[in-house]
């Protein structure tokens, strides 16, 4: 089973509180925030590794990023993926999800033409930074593959390469169980698994694994569909929402605080039910 995994380097979501907007230039200031592999993309890599353990085949990682994206790809190769493709060119910059999906699809098609075709494309359901969740669906549409998003479980039964997979999709009040025919694109959420750690041996092996870089010339895309020009959505102003409140401190012993808290709660008109039992 040949699996492509789409991976994106993102600023570490644990540190989004320290991202600011420069009041002069109105540009984003994310200095000091390290770049990591998007958390749900790591889950996609883990899901791919599990499928490979069962069915064999190879795993190719794709990322569209500036040249320093190479470092993050090495990390994913160290987890156990077989090959990596860095899709990188200034002309790809400023792409929205539609242009990004198109560019990734061109890379997947190029890789398929050069070696074997893919049975499955996996991706994190959404990136931590932009979090649109569009890419799995849009890549699926453009490849002409079946596609599903928000997958929390993949069940692969039987021996040999399967024709279809049973997958569970997270919905508002539970799960949808789908059978999806391959080839397919599947977006997975972080609920699906806990990604493995990289081993020292994995890091050493990663250095010897095939690594391709595709620039714009290599992909020969329709230029009207890449980068800023190929993006139907345009970014306007950015701002930080005002969520500030007065943060009045209650102090004293826990008992004193509890006493004051009960007073404050009553003052805003919330009723405390004597004896509890409201949710029984």
């Amino acid at each position: 089973m040949n699996i492509g995994v789409l991976v994106k380097p993102v600023p570490d979501p644990e540190q989004y509180n320290s991202i600011t907007i420069d009041p002069e230039t109105k540009r984003l200031n994310r200095s000091g925030v390290p770049t990591i592999v998007n958390p749900s993309d790591k889950c996609a890599v883990e899901a791919a590794l599990k499928l490979k353990e069962k069915f064999g085949g190879k795993i190719v990682i794709f990322t569209m990023a500036p040249p320093d994206g190479r470092e993050k790809l090495m990390e994913v190769l160290a987890m156990g993926a077989d090959e990596a493709v860095l899709v990188s060119d200034r002309e790809f910059g400023g792409a929205d999800t539609l242009a990004t999906s198109y560019t990734l699809v061109k890379a997947v098609e190029k890789k398929s033409a050069e070696s074997e075709s893919f049975d499955l494309i996996l991706s994190g359901n959404e990136s931590a930074d932009g979090a649109t969740g569009h890419v799995p669906a849009q890549v699926g549409e453009m490849l002409g593959f079946n596609h599903l998003s928000a997958i929390v479980q993949i069940v692969a039964e039987g021996e040999g390469r399967p024709d279809s997979l049973t997958v569970f999709q997270k919905i508002e009040n539970g799960k949808n169980e789908f059978e999806i025919k391959l080839p397919a694109v599947i977006g997975v959420t972080r609920d699906i698994n806990k990604p493995r750690y990289t081993s020292a041996m994995g890091v050493i092996k990663a250095k010897k694994k095939p690594f391709d870089t595709y620039d714009c010339e290599a992909l020969s895309p329709d230029k009207s569909r890449i980068g800023i020009e190929g993006s139907p959505t345009k970014a306007g102003a950015i701002f930080t929402p005002d969520t500030g409140r007065k943060s009045e401190e209650l102090s004293g012993s826990p008992e004193e605080i509890a006493e004051e808290l009960v007073k404050r709660i009553k003052a805003i008109g919330v009723t405390i039910n004597s004896g509890g039992g409201c949710r029984e």
Partner: peptide, 12 residues
């Protein structure tokens, strides 16, 4: 964006 830390305007 960034978990809601930043709001960006999008136009089509």
């Amino acid at each position: 964006a960034f978990g809601g830390k930043v709001i960006g305007e999008i136009l089509t």
